[in-house]
Simulated scan of single mutants.
Amino acid sequence: MDRSDYDALDAGAVAAALGDLADAFSLVLLAECDSTNSRLLAQLPPDDGRVHVLAADVQTSGRGRRGRVWQSWPGASLTFSALWRFAPGSPVPAGLSLVAGLAVARALEELGVDGVQLKWPNDVLVHGRKLAGILVELTPGRGRTPAAVVGIGVNLSLPPDAQVEYATGVTDLAECLGRAPGASQLLGLVLVQLHRLFEVYAAAGFSALRGAWQQRNAFADLPVSIIGEAEALSGTCAGVDEDGALLLHTPEGLRRVLSGEVSLRLA
């Protein structure tokens, strides 16, 4: 498909959506990329005080958590990765994927999307159906400023024959809003929210954003199962703690589950 056949990413339109924050970002926009996360991790940009963003109209080898593939079609989704650096010498704090999810949720709500929910630790849902996914990968430490690559994919307008597997179904912004917003506008809106929330996060930790995440918790007080733990684990979702770990009411008491390679499912 020719780039003129769909709403390709445009640097000017992204900058317009960023507004006063345009100078805080370095943007690289590609027609096609294997994986924006992989590319950023393999070729870390210099630390010039800006947030480096790599976005692609199409990813040919997009990745999700636990080895999953993020499927991509021209004009069907917004896919990008952003490199976030933290204060030298500080450990990369926990809960990054939850903060990123909250940023996506707020950007969607700003567009007028109703029923936005967050599924621990990395999915954004609308009325229970998946709209966006997040993949956070830490960069190697040793003497470097701690940093993380935050990859985000948002469904804009999936093709009619797309077959995307998700336990509770998938949706896109064309369905949620009647018409998908431009990828450039959406990228700018999400980056603005990421910038705002990561500033709060760096200063006060996840505890400052925990309440906002809890308000959108898709599985609040519902029976859930954890897949990927050494032992089978089921209980009632009690939200998250101040480090972003999942809290689970079980017959044996309150359990704390770290994200790692586990997956949350409705029981």
Rank of each mutant, 00 (worst) to 15 (best):
L98R: 01
Q163S: 13
T60S: 15
S97V: 01
D5V: 00
P146G: 04
A183Y: 07
D23S: 12
E231S: 04
S259Y: 00
G205Y: 08
L158T: 10
E252F: 11
R65M: 04
S97N: 00
G235E: 01
V14N: 12
P46N: 05
E165G: 02
D48L: 06
G235H: 01
L266C: 13
V149Y: 02
N122D: 10
G151T: 02
A180G: 08
G169W: 08
G188Q: 05
E137V: 10
G205L: 07
A218W: 14
D10F: 03
L83A: 01
L135V: 02
V99K: 01
E199M: 13
E229P: 00
G178N: 03
D241L: 10
H249I: 11
F219H: 15
D5E: 09
G169R: 10
G143L: 06
Y166V: 06
Q43V: 01
L96W: 02
E229D: 11
V150R: 01
T60N: 11
T171Q: 05
A212Y: 07
L78M: 04
L125W: 06
L158Q: 13
L9I: 03
G151C: 06
V262F: 07
I152Q: 02
L248T: 13
A238W: 03
R196M: 05
V164G: 07
Q43M: 04
E231M: 02
R85K: 10
L258F: 11
H195D: 13
D2G: 14
I226Q: 03
A202I: 05
T79C: 07
Q43S: 14
S38W: 07
A16F: 09
D114W: 07
I226F: 09
D34I: 01
G228V: 08
L111G: 05
S77Y: 06
L173S: 02
A202E: 13
N217I: 05
G89Y: 04
L125I: 04
G12A: 07
G141L: 12
F206K: 07
D114H: 12
A94R: 13
D47N: 12
V224K: 09
F80G: 02
R68T: 11
L98K: 04
N37T: 12
A162I: 09
